[in-house]
């Protein structure tokens, strides 16, 4: 069964908003999310497939409410937790 990210052919998401002279990122935090993902992928903390899966596993309502880089942030937070990148063992 398809999930919410599988958007090809769906109706009701228009019209298209086209921004002229769009900057690469609209907020500083978006650029940092992009860079975080790049560094964590490069250092092998998780794979691109795992990253995509983490985005796609978002609950549909959360997915649709989130902006593009908010979805990325959600996926990074999820993977960092799942992969124990920040594990602090209870003393």
């Amino acid at each position: 069964m398809s999930r919410v990210h599988d958007m090809g052919g769906q109706h009701g998401f228009g019209p298209l908003a086209i921004e002229s002279d769009e900057p690469p990122f609209h907020h500083e935090w978006e650029a940092r999310v992009f860079a975080l993902n790049r560094l964590l992928l490069r250092s092998g903390r998780y794979t691109l497939d795992e990253f995509r899966a983490a985005v796609e596993a978002m609950p549909p309502a959360d997915y649709l409410a989130a902006s593009y880089y908010e979805r990325w942030l959600h996926a990074i937070e999820t993977l960092v937790r799942e992969k124990g990148v920040l594990d602090v063992r209870p003393g």
Binding site: M7, G8, G9, Q10, F13, G14, I18, E19, F25
Partner: peptide, 23 residues
Amino acid sequence: GPSPTWYKSEAYRSQAVRDPRGI
């Protein structure tokens, strides 16, 4: 270069395959 927001939007992703002339 960095992809534009419209390319990543639900509107483009859903409509492009269904109605390319409309897009």
